[in-house]
Design a protein around this nucleic acid. Structure first.
Lengths: 362, 362
DNA sequence: GCACTTCAGGAGAGCGCTCTCCATGGGGTG
DNA sequence: CACCCCATGGAGAGCGCTCTCCTGAAGTGC
C-alpha cells in the first residue's frame, strides 16, 4: 500500500514529512500536539500519516525523551525462597505450580489490584509490565529493569512485611508507589486502608448481633495489615467489655483459615462469633464450621474482610468489611504518574476508609 | 560515586569506554559478549562497568536492534461491551469492579497462565506487558502497541471464540502465539489441550464408579474448549450405551454452575453423577447438591475439569481432569520466542494430554 | 624473508525521534 | 513609515547504542 512513499520497513517521520511536503519537525509537532501549527498544514500532515500508515517508533522517542511511558507492577514478598538450584535457567514446560506467582493469584486480592491499575492506565495509553520479586535476585532484576529505563516507575504490592524492595528502589532514586504502608519507614508514597477501623466495624457488628463468645482468626502478624486488623478488633472488643478474646494466627489463605477454625473450635466449642481477617480464611472457617455441624450464622456468626469474590462464593455469602482495592490501586497508579510528571512533588499517603457489607453469614 | 568519570545523569557506553581506555565498540562487544576480545581488556571493561555503575539504555539499544525484548500477554475476548461512555477518560478512583479484568481474574485459570509465562520468561530477563482486549478499541490498542515496537510479539489468551484479535495481529504481520485453537483458522501457532480426551477420562471414571444417571454441565458452546469437552463426554457416554444424557450449558463461572445444577436437579432428581466442564462450575454444583441434601460423592459423584485451585478448595476435594496450564503457557511462550528468533519458522501447534486426578468427589 | 591470512580493536555512520535555535513574514503600534 | 513582536515552520544537533568497515599487528606457509 502506497509503497511509493516509503523507503522500506515501517514508515518514519521522514516519510510522512516528505508525503506532506513539510519538515520532520512539523510532523512531530502535529503528532505530539504541541505548539501552534496552521490548521491547513495539520490536516495535510494527518492525511499523510494515515496514507503512510505511520506509527511513531517508541524506542526512538524514548531515547530522546528519556521516558519509557511504561510502568512496572511488581508483586513483591517472600515466596518459596531460592533453593540452591535457583540459577538453573530451566524452568521448562514442566511447570512449577507451587511458585510464588501461583500463590499470589490464589488470592482474589491481586486480581483486583490489577483491575484497578489497568483501569487507570488504559485510558492513558499505558500498560503495566508484570513482575514478581520474591527473591533477592528477582529484586535486583526489578531495579535493573527500572534503571535501564524500560519502565519509568514501579507500583509495588508487598505480600510480606520487611520487604526490602521499596528501600532498594528508593535508594536507587527510582520512582515508586506502594500498596500498603511499609513495615519500616521508606520515603515512598503509598495508599492504604484504615484497617483498624475496618476491624472495629466487624467487632461492633458481631456485638450488635449479641454474639458474646467471639474469637478471631488474625492475619500473619508480621504484616502490618494483619497486625492492624487484630489491634483494631481487640481494642474494640476490650472497649465493650471483652478484654480477652481467643486468637489464632492465620496466613490469609483458605487452608490456614480452616486449620485456625479447627483449633478455635477445639479450644472453645461454645463460641458464637468469628472475625476472620480476610475472606479466604472466613471461607475456610465456614467450611470447618459446617463440617462440625455448626450452622452459619445460626450457631456461629462469621465476618470476613476484603469483600473479595470469595465473599460471594461462600455459602452463606459472607458479611465482610469492604476494602476498595480497585479504587486504592487506581489511586496508587495516579500517585505514581503524578510523581513522574513532578519528580520532586511531595511523598504522600492516601488512606481509604473501609465499609461494612452485611450479607448472610453474620 | 566516581562522578569524575561521568558527565552527568546515567553513565553511558562512552563513559565506560573512557574509564577503561578503550573504544565504545569494544565495551559494547564485552557487554553483549560477541566476538573475541582479549581477556585482559575484557576484565578492564568489566571493572569499568562496575566502577561507573553502567546500565545499558534499552531505548538506544532497541532503536538499532529493532527489538524491544519485551512481549505482551493479552487477555482477549468479549467483556462488558463498550457503552456509549466508553470514551470517558475518567475511570477514576471510583473503581469499576465488574470490569473485564475482574471477570478474568475470578477464574484461577488465568493466574496459572501468568505463572507459566512468567516462569519461562524470567530466566531470560524478560517480563510480560499485561494487556486486556475486550473491545474493538482495546484491540486496536494492542495492535498499535505492537506496531510501535513496544513489544516484539503477543501471547493471546482468548476467553471467547470468534475473537477477532488473532486475525488482526496476523494481518498486521505481527508475531503471536495463541492459547487454544482459534474458532476460525488463523495462520498463527497455538498450544491447546486434547479436550475430548479429557472429557473421555471423566466419563469413563464416572461409569467406572457405576454411576448410571449421569448429567453434564457444559462450558459455553461457542468456545471451542466448551464444545470439545461436551463432544468428548457425549461420545464416550454413547459408546458405553448412554446415547442420551442431560446437558445444561454453563459459562465456566461458579454461579452458572450453581444455576445449572439447580436445573439438572429439578429435571432429574435421581441423578448420581455429574461432569462439570470446569472446576469452578463443579464447585458451584457441589454447593447446590449439598443444599439439596445430596452428599458428594455418596449420592452424587462430581467430576470437574482443569485441576485448578478451586478443585482443592472444594469440599470434598474435586476429582478432576488435570490441564497442565502452566506447562502449556510456558510452551506457548517458548513458541513465541522461537518465532521471534526465526521469523519464518513454521506455524505449529502443540497439543497437551490431560490426566485424571482422582480425589474425593468421585 | 615475503606475501598472505587472521583477528583484535577503532572509527564512524546511522537507528527515528525531539527540541532548541533560527529565519521568515505578517500585523500591530508609535 | 519604521519598528518590533510574535506566530510559524525549517534546519540540524544530538539521545546511546550497534554494527559494518577498516586498520594494523601478529601469525602462517613456502
Amino acid at each position: 500500500m502506497t509503497d511509493d512513499l516509503r523507503s522500506a520497513g515501517a514508515p518514519t517521520l521522514e516519510d510522512v514529512a516528505r508525503a506532506a511536503g513539510v519538515s520532520r519537525a512539523t510532523v512531530s509537532r502535529v503528532v505530539n500536539g504541541v505548539r501552534n501549527v496552521d490548521p491547513v498544514i495539520q490536516e495535510a500532515v494527518r492525511r499523510a500519516v494515515s496514507v503512510t500508515g505511520y506509527t511513531p517508533n517508541r524506542a526512538a522517542r524514548s531515547l530522546v525523551t528519556r521516558r519509557a511511558d511504561a510502568i512496572a507492577l511488581v508483586v513483591s514478598g517472600a515466596g518459596v525462597e531460592p533453593k540452591a538450584a535457583e540459577e538453573s535457567e530451566d524452568t521448562t514446560a514442566s511447570g512449577d505450580g507451587s511458585s510464588f506467582t501461583a500463590q499470589v493469584f490464589a488470592d482474589p486480592f491481586f486480581g483486583r489490584v490489577v483491575t484497578g491499575v489497568v483501569n487507570y492506565l488504559r485510558p492513558r495509553g499505558m500498560h503495566p509490565v508484570l513482575m514478581f520479586a520474591e527473591s533477592s535476585r528477582a529484586r535486583e532484576d526489578v531495579v535493573a529493569y527500572l534503571r535501564q529505563g524500560r519502565a519509568d516507575g514501579a507500583l509495588v504490592v508487598s505480600t510480606h512485611a520487611e520487604d526490602p524492595l521499596p528501600a532498594l528502589i528508593a535508594e536507587a532514586g527510582l520512582a515508586a508507589v506502594l500498596f500498603a504502608r511499609p513495615a519500616r519507614p521508606v520515603p515512598v508514597s503509598y495508599v492504604d486502608l484504615a484497617h483498624q477501623d475496618g476491624a472495629r466495624l466487624a467487632a461492633e457488628h458481631l456485638l450488635g448481633r449479641n454474639c458474646r463468645r467471639i474469637a478471631t482468626i488474625s492475619g500473619p502478624l508480621d504484616v502490618p495489615a494483619g497486625q492492624a486488623r487484630l489491634t483494631g478488633f481487640r481494642d474494640t472488643m476490650a472497649r465493650h467489655g471483652h478484654p480477652y478474646i481467643p486468637i489464632v494466627e492465620g496466613q490469609f489463605t483458605q487452608e490456614s483459615g480452616e486449620a485456625a477454625m479447627e483449633r478455635l473450635l477445639a479450644e472453645h466449642p461454645d463460641l458464637d462469633g468469628v472475625f476472620a481477617a480476610n475472606d479466604l480464611m472466613a471461607l475456610g472457617a465456614c467450611h470447618v464450621l459446617r463440617e462440625h455441624g455448626r450452622s452459619v450464622p445460626g450457631d456461629v456468626a462469621v465476618v470476613g474482610f476484603d469483600d473479595s469474590s470469595a465473599a460471594l462464593a461462600c455459602r452463606p455469602p459472607l458479611t465482610t468489611v469492604r476494602q476498595p482495592v480497585e479504587g486504592m490501586a487506581a489511586e496508587m497508579t495516579r500517585l505514581l504518574l503524578d510523581r513522574l510528571s513532578r519528580p520532586d512533588g511531595p511523598v504522600t499517603s492516601v488512606i481509604f476508609e473501609p465499609e461494612l457489607v452485611v450479607r448472610a453469614s453474620a
